[in-house]
């Protein structure tokens, strides 16, 4: 039977007249990797801080690991966290920063420091002072701090933001292993939507403080709109020709920096051969024509745009 690790009930936080988080209801179950997405100022960090007892909700309840979260709660032994930008004591070395965490978490085993240093590949930097670390290694140090107590729950705000591509993959695999093998529940916010797409078992999208969509990885596949992508030698003329035939095409830049057109009209998606025919007849034979599902990034932008309207 599944077990809720985080439960929020009409979780609201106002700052004066501004409602940062509005009646948020979340249920995160054990072993889930829950990705919390939103634009800047959507309420992600406020939610994370409330989950960690750093901000008192204006109204509503939050329950973490079976306990109501209060300002000075007793549950932090089982919770690892990384809130916003990575920070550490600048004049302490990597090792000393982790020793501070070991003491504050009352971890009796002194070897946990070396273990987590190895886990995050910080061995080369263990004697380096935190102020001399690169932003990527500082991020690793903060992740090590979150993982040192082998917590049941990880609450991570942008865990991969400062990492290089290899580091992103490494952290992704580490988090996936923790969730799969140790049953660690992970609640994370991220701007790297490609990573979220690969890692999350469930995704919540918050916009202007409200949860506007929540879905499992399977739901996401089903909800993604298929699109028609095409390229010709004259995109401006192609847009004009398609417009005359009732199809709206928009330009975008593909991953390999090529100007492309996309059509979301489901009639075009269902019958790409008709689009090809129109273009050939207009003397604009397509050099590329494919039906693709929108990625998380496009899905996210579409959903937040629709919410804005």
């Amino acid at each position: 039977m599944s077990e809720a690790v985080i439960t929020t009930e009409n979780f609201t936080r106002c700052f004066g007249d501004f409602t940062a988080v509005d009646k948020l209801n979340l249920v995160i179950e054990r072993g889930e990797i829950y990705a919390f997405l939103g634009l800047n100022g959507a309420g992600k960090s406020t939610t994370i801080r409330m989950l960690l007892g750093m901000i008192t909700p204006s109204s509503g309840k939050v329950n973490v690991l079976g306990h109501e979260v209060k300002a000075d709660s007793t549950i932090w032994q089982q919770v690892g966290h990384l809130v916003e930008s990575p920070t550490a004591y600048p004049e302490l070395t990597v090792r000393e920063n982790l020793e501070v965490v070991r003491l504050l978490h009352n971890l009796k085993d002194r070897n946990v420091v070396d273990r987590v240093i190895d886990q995050l590949n910080l061995g080369r930097y263990k004697s380096r002072k935190a102020h001399a670390l690169s932003s990527g290694n500082l991020q690793r140090l903060c992740l090590a701090r979150a993982l040192i107590s082998e917590p049941d729950l990880l609450i991570l705000d942008e865990p991969a933001s400062a990492l290089d591509p290899a580091g992103v993959v490494e952290v992704r695999e580490l988090l996936r292993t923790l969730a799969k093998e140790k049953g660690t529940t992970i609640f994370m916010s991220s701007h790297i939507l490609g990573e979220v797409d690969r890692l999350a078992s469930r995704i919540g999208i918050i916009h202007q403080g409200r949860l506007i969509e929540e879905m499992s990885a399977g739901d996401l596949e089903a909800r993604r709109q298929p699109e028609l992508h095409l390229h010709t030698n004259n995109l401006t003329k192609t847009i004009l020709v398609l417009s005359e035939r009732g199809f709206s095409a928009t330009t975008y830049t593909s991953a390999n920096n090529l100007e492309m057109l996309t059509i979301t009209d489901q009639k075009a998606v269902a019958h790409p051969e008709q689009i090809a025919k129109i273009l050939v007849e207009a003397g604009l034979p397509p050099t590329h024509l494919s039906v693709e599902q929108e990625d998380l990034e496009k899905h996210f932008l579409r959903i937040t745009r629709e919410a804005q309207q």
């Binding site: 960690l52 007892g53 750093m54 000075d72 932090w76 919770v79 916003e84 003491l103 978490h105």
Partner: peptide, 16 residues
């Protein structure tokens, strides 16, 4: 100033 307070507020060691 070091922004380490965010970490200190959610550790098992009581704030007092």
């Amino acid at each position: 100033s070091n922004r380490t307070v965010r970490y200190l507020l959610a550790v098992p060691t009581p704030r007092p």
